[in-house]
Design a protein around this nucleic acid. Structure first.
Length: 204
DNA sequence: TGCCAGGCCCTCTTTAGGGCCTT
């Protein structure tokens, strides 16, 4: 059993950089408890300005949908309550963390949980994957998918399945069934060529 | 005026450059 409780999250945003004025437009997240999904959160949020046609096409989230959504302030307040003090995972967490920090900073809130990254872990655990994009990793690991990527809750759900597939792969290959969040963070920071040695060192 | 993200990670590297990943 995996004792860790995690929140796996994904943002859809108006662009790539909160420092350039971009805002979140959707948050999706699932809570994993002992390797099972035990809760979820999804909400659109109105960034206060129109999103580009690129973002409308990329996400399927239209300006019309956003005009009826709650404010970023309201949604992020609710989401902050949802994540509480749990540790957090995202696919390319550097991206999602920038937006999470930026939106919470506007509310005067800060995080207590630690972060880990499914993208960094996948580059180490699935070194043979042709690509480490979320959608292609889902295909690579034969996880069933309806192809609804680029919506926040769907991507968060798929990331959670990928996360469990990576832990299963580690368990299968090394007999390590109960990696701690701290150990996974250490894997995130370990050079690819040294990951095998590190995992073997934990087997004893 | 012109430009516009940032962190990871590899290599033809470390006094750097460029691809990958996220929207």
């Amino acid at each position: 059993m995996r004792a860790d409780t995690l929140v796996i999250l994904d943002f859809e945003t108006t662009g790539l950089s909160p420092d350039q004025g971009d805002r979140a437009i959707e948050i999706g997240a699932v809570r994993l408890v002992n390797g099972k999904i035990k809760g979820q959160f999804q909400a659109l949020m109105n960034p206060g300005f129109p999103v580009s046609s690129f973002i409308e096409d990329y996400t399927g989230i239209s300006n019309s949908m956003l005009s009826e959504a709650d404010s970023c302030q309201q949604v992020m307040t609710d989401f902050s309550d949802f994540i509480a003090d749990d540790n957090l995972v995202a696919h390319n967490v550097a991206f999602d963390r920038r937006f999470l920090d930026a939106e919470l900073k506007r509310l005067g809130k800060h995080l207590n949980g630690e972060f880990s990254c499914s993208l960094l872990l996948s580059r180490r655990i699935f070194q043979d994957a042709p690509s480490h994009k979320l959608g292609e990793l889902i295909q690579f690991t034969n996880i069933p998918s309806s192809g609804g990527f680029h919506r926040a809750l769907y991507d968060a759900q798929m990331t959670s399945y990928l996360w469990m597939a990576m832990l299963d792969s580690i368990a299968e290959r090394y007999g390590l069934f109960d990696l701690s969040f701290e150990q996974i963070q250490k894997l995130n920071k370990t050079a690819k060529k040294s990951v095998d040695k590190l995992l073997k060192s934990w087997c004893a």
